[in-house]
């Protein structure tokens, strides 16, 4: 008799990889008894695909059910579910689509998927209060450079060479035919935020995007300003104080240490 561990290893191999575990199962009128395992294999496939459909409704609309499900099945081979909470199963789907469409005309699909995932993350992230300005005012100026500012848990940074947000927004509604969008019109950099339970998008300059990415990676203020200035358009100076004020007001920067 196999141990419980051995039995589970073989049964999961049958359910996820189509291996043979029929001898462990009572046939009970079904020949072969692997058909009983197939019920679970089918449920597992459907549950996984359904979780991706729920996580990527716009992508589903853009590519249609058949192609979406085909991608979901292939993705599952590479990134099987690693949690009992299926909400996280789609975390690497956008990256997978990016590899799938490298260099092709459908490269934008991965960016739209990435944006959808960031929106979901933002909507489920923890709450946080505003930055305590009185506390900041007490900091000695000599310490400014070494401060590490913290972004709101719901803040997400996004960049694409395509008009991904416009495509996403145009395909949110299911009852109307989406307009044609010119992929060549170029991309944008964005800060996603959640305020009052709703998503907000802030357009970012290259300098602002680099600055906030640097803060998100826990860089000290001086280093983040340097990164932001280096990425800024040559013509426009990077005004660190103005940038800081803008994102404190937007409740994107909420704490420091």
């Amino acid at each position: 008799m196999p141990t419980l561990r051995e039995l589970q290893t073989r049964v999961l191999g049958a359910v996820l990889d189509g291996e043979d575990a029929a001898e462990l199962i009572r046939a009970g009128g079904l020949t072969p008894s692997s058909e009983r395992l197939e019920v679970y294999a089918n449920n597992a496939r459907i549950n996984f695909t359904e979780s991706l459909r729920l996580g990527y409704p716009v992508l589903l609309r853009l590519v249609g059910e058949a192609y979406f499900d085909q991608c979901a099945r292939a993705y599952r081979m590479q990134c099987p579910s690693r949690s009992g909470d299926l909400h996280s199963a789609g975390a690497a789907f956008a990256a997978y689509l990016g590899e799938l469409h490298t260099g092709g005309e459908h490269r934008y699909l991965a960016d739209v998927a990435h944006l959808e995932w960031l929106c979901q993350e933002s909507l489920m992230a923890a709450e946080h209060g505003r930055l305590d300005l009185a506390r900041l005012a007490e900091v000695a100026p000599a310490r400014y450079e070494s401060l590490r500012f913290k972004l709101h848990p719901a803040a997400r940074l996004f960049a694409s060479d395509y008009p991904a947000r416009e495509i996403w927004e145009a395909n949110l509604a299911t009852e109307t035919e989406p307009p044609l969008i010119d992929l060549a019109k170029g991309g944008e950099r964005l800060l996603l935020m959640r305020r009052g339970g709703r998503l907000e998008f802030h357009r970012l300059s290259p300098g602002e995007h680099a600055f906030l990415e640097s803060l998100a990676a826990h860089a000290a203020f001086a280093a983040a300003v340097e990164t932001g200035a280096a990425a800024a358009d040559a013509a426009a100076a990077f005004d660190a104080a103005a940038v800081l004020r803008r994102f404190v007001a937007a409740e994107a920067i909420v704490d420091f240490s």
Partner: peptide, 15 residues
């Protein structure tokens, strides 16, 4: 529903 870190995300019976 899981073994070796992989999940079927379905409710499999025990022996």
């Amino acid at each position: 529903s899981s073994v070796g870190g992989r999940f079927a995300n379905d409710l499999l019976p025990l022996p």
